[in-house]
Write a protein that binds this DNA or RNA. Structure first.
Lengths: 101, 101
DNA sequence: TTTGACGCTATTTTTTTCGTAGCATTGGCG
DNA sequence: CGCCAATGCTACGAAAAAAATAGCGTCAAA
């Protein structure tokens, strides 16, 4: 059986991160662990069912884990979050270009 | 009026990229311009309505544009795609860690 | 024993996405 | 010209995902 596009790690990643709130959750956790309820608030009040679903997915992928302090990034999750931080800086420049013309 | 979280460039970005097919479209265009139909095929046959919606959004954000060769990344889009390429390499290592015990 | 915060489930409504058909336009080609 | 194939894209009903909200069960402090 041929290796499908979908099996490539990047596709698994793009597919998962391309779901609502996935990126955002990682972004928010980057400031430290958070409880379920705190995470909801941070994410503009995302509904608990979706949040729970996403947490499960991100957990399965090994990006987050449950700790005594609530949900927290794993090593991999932290590594991924680093990229988001860099993206933040990129986004600011992009925004300037875009609006500042 | 206070500056809301949602106004930050990174939030605009996370929100847009966190929609289905957004990341994937940029990923696919990184190999060069593609027609509407070619893009559909590349993206696992995504429905034309959604594709069109996403193309509009990405266009508004300045990541892609229409050219004679079809849809293509702009300079900003290309810059963003660079990050995805790096993420690809990251994803492979992550995958090895994950499955390779 | 009441109170409050917690993680989370359940249920209903609304929004988004999918799947498919097909229309309008364009560019050969005879 | 008429025909054809390919294109970008719209339309629309069905299915899936997400939102909104209520509230259960647990625990720990008061």
């Amino acid at each position: 059986m041929a290796k499908s596009k979908k099996d490539r790690p990047i596709m698994v990643l793009l597919d998962s991160l391309g779901r609502r709130w996935s990126l955002r959750i990682i972004w928010e956790l980057q400031e430290g662990p958070a409880t379920f309820r705190a995470l909801r608030k941070a994410c503009d009040g995302v509904s608990p069912s979706v949040l729970n679903t996403r947490l499960g997915e991100l957990r399965k992928l090994g990006f987050i884990e449950k700790t005594d302090d609530g949900y927290a990034l794993t090593r991999d999750g932290d590594s991924l979050a680093d990229r988001l931080i860099k993206l933040d800086r990129w986004a600011r420049r992009w925004d300037k270009r875009r609006r500042g013309k």
